[in-house]
Design a protein around this nucleic acid. Structure first.
Length: 566
RNA sequence: CGGGGCGUAGCACAGUCCGGUCAGCGCGCCUGCUUUGGGAGCAGGAGGCCGCAGGUUCAAAUCCUGCCGCCCCGACCA
């Protein structure tokens, strides 16, 4: 490809809307342009990279027996109503206004299940792995960070259909391995975390994460043993509060100026372990009183999983008065005027000697015994881990990092097949819902994450898997030196004929412009043809990632390329 | 949806408080000449409803009202 004819609008300055490296570089290198918030056009160079990603995805999905579909983005809404997801998705789903009953698909479990229901009627028809690489539409409330969170994006989504849970496990493992191959071959540094299947009611789920300050997920990772988990479900090894030797009855004391745990600790010389913090949530419109140790933070996702709902919110001030007759800072487990559910974090299990609110503004109780004095309905792991706590596997200090979710694999179970009536007959002739899994990878996120991990002051640094071209042939000073033009053309033709993907900078611009553009675009190998070297029958080879330069004979070029790309 | 910021040429910005002197700078673009190993020089030139709509005023990029768009923080994210 001759660069003089190729549309690569590079920018010297970064558009002010772009803040993170991948976004800035994708704009500057002429890969994408933004059309509207969360909506991007891929320009030729960017699309070339995207197609390379897609090819890798296709290769690995085919390798595990996946069959490629292309499902419509326009969906009849009634299928989505049957699974209850029109409501669950809420505003995230785009609805067509001038044609009643159509929506834009944000994902495709429903449509896959629809087709499975039509034709997968026997255990003999399974297992199946169906996938597609297609645009998804989600009305994100706030798109951000370039292509990392958009309203229209490309996803590789696959779905497994199995007759048994053993089969599902196998399909899941196939995907897990394929995903590792995909990210490894691209050269991404990633880690896998256990994730919450949340209110979806699935069985197991893992996410493929890239550590990044631009990430929207938080994970706890252990660098020693490899433990990694999404914050939503992460646990750590923390000391339980336990019991102390004391039979003292609980006793009210005035705490007029202590509303927070820290104020209690300071004013009454307590330890965090002695304090049972009360938190009140409204879960499915019913209040739940939750106890956490000291300043331990409650994790909403864990709460959602316990109650299997995403209808969870902190109680409002007037609700606290209504249920407890007291306000925040004075709530506790004893003398609750209304009957509500009480749960506590595992760390407080069966503890005593505790201080908690007296359900009377300005008063607390001390010497509370959770066994003797309270009716704690259940104990659950409810706390959010924090950095530096001990890994529950190996005891090393956990790190807490921001991460970008690149892929998600998920054992769905029978939620969709049951809702849509996708049943099959087993060998004994008994009817069962199809057992499903769903697996997704964000295509644009791969590109953005790759760039986040591979750039320098000059621009992007591609490795061989995703580079839009294998060689950047840069001709210098053609107007002054027709011989250089001639030699460059000859090299271009020879490499192209030999099957190399060559971007040939045959523009008449000054060398500085060409070098800077080349580094910005980031093709791994640059071959520089200038008059000085040409006269000696030589060209210069520059390796982008380490800036290594060598002057070689024209005849050696292909050998060097074969070596680099072997 | 709450909070904050912004909208002036392709990109980056100044001008807005304090209305008139205001359509400006740099880069990019076009033409010519010179130049060519890390974003060249000189000369000449093109490009704008100052986001949109209303209002105030003799006069609006500038003041007022409404709307739209974009970015950031938060909420949200099968």
């Amino acid at each position: 490809m001759k660069q003089s004819k190729y549309f690569i609008p590079t920018l010297k300055e970064a558009p002010s809307d772009a803040l993170i490296p991948s976004h800035i570089l994708m704009l500057r290198a002429g890969l994408v342009r933004q059309l509207a918030s969360g909506i991007f056009s891929f320009l030729p160079l960017g699309y070339k990279i995207k197609k390379k990603v897609i090819e890798i995805l296709r290769r690995e999905m085919d390798a595990i027996g996946g069959q490629e579909f292309l499902l419509p983005a326009l969906n009849p809404i009634d299928i989505w109503e049957q699974t209850g997801r029109v409501e669950a998705m809420g505003d995230v789903m785009f609805h067509i206004k001038n044609r009643e009953g159509l929506v834009l698909a944000p994902t495709h479990e429903e449509i896959i299940t629809y087709h499975a229901r039509q034709h997968v009627k026997s255990y003999r028809d399974m297992p199946q792995i169906w996938y597609q690489i297609q645009n998804k539409f989600r009305n994100e409330p706030r798109p951000k960070s370039g292509v990392l969170r958009g309203r229209q994006f490309t996803m590789k989504d696959s779905y497994s259909l199995d007759a048994t849970f053993e089969g599902l496990n196998e399909s899941y493992e196939f995907h897990r391995t394929a995903y590792q191959k995909i990210f490894d071959s691209i050269g991404l540094k990633y880690f896998i975390v256990s994730a919450s299947s949340g209110a979806m009611g699935g069985r197991q789920s893992e996410e493929f994460m890239v550590e990044s300050d631009s990430g929207e997920d938080t994970c706890a990772v252990c660098d020693d043993c490899g433990y990694a988990a999404n914050f939503e479900i992460a646990t750590s090894d923390v000391e339980p509060v336990g019991r102390i030797q004391s039979d003292d009855h609980y006793e009210e004391f005035a705490t007029p100026n202590a509303k927070t745990i820290n104020e209690l600790i300071v004013q009454f010389n307590l330890t965090e372990d002695q304090c049972a913090k009360s938190v009140v949530y409204i879960v499915d419109s019913a209040p739940v009183l939750i106890f956490m140790r000291g300043n331990d933070e409650m994790n909403e996702t864990k709460l959602q999983s316990i109650f299997k709902t995403n209808q969870v919110r902190p109680a409002e001030a007037d609700e606290l008065v209504k249920y407890f007759g007291a306000s925040t800072g004075s709530l506790g487990p004893i003398n609750i005027p209304t009957k509500i559910k009480v749960i506590a974090d595992l760390r407080l299990k069966d503890a005593n000697g505790l201080v908690s609110g007296a359900n009377k503004d300005g008063y607390h109780f001390k010497n509370i015994d959770f066994i003797r004095d309270c009716n704690i309905n259940e104990y659950h792991d409810l706390r959010t881990v924090s950095a530096g706590e001990k890994c529950s596997k190996c005891g090393s200090a956990l790190r807490v990092v921001k991460a970008i979710e690149l892929g998600h694999i998920f054992k769905l179970g029978t939620k969709y097949s049951e809702a849509l009536g996708a049943h099959f007959l087993d060998a004994a002739g008994a009817e069962h819902p199809i057992i499903m899994g769903s697996y997704g990878i964000g295509v644009e996120r791969i590109i953005a994450c790759y760039i986040e991990q591979n750039y320098d002051d000059h621009g992007i640094i591609w490795k061989k898997a995703l580079t839009p071209f294998q060689v950047h042939l840069i001709g210098l000073n053609f107007t002054k030196s027709p011989e250089t033009a001639e030699v460059s053309e000859r090299i271009y033709k020879r490499l192209t004929d030999a099957g190399w993907e060559v971007l040939f900078d045959d523009r008449t611009d000054s060398p500085g412009i060409k070098f800077n553009d080349a580094d910005l675009i980031g093709i791994p190998v640059q071959i520089i043809c200038g008059p000085k070297n040409i006269s000696q029958g030589k060209v210069e080879v520059k390796i982008r990632h380490n800036n290594e330069r060598s002057t070689v004979d024209e005849a050696e070029i292909e050998l060097i390329l074969s070596e680099f790309y072997k």
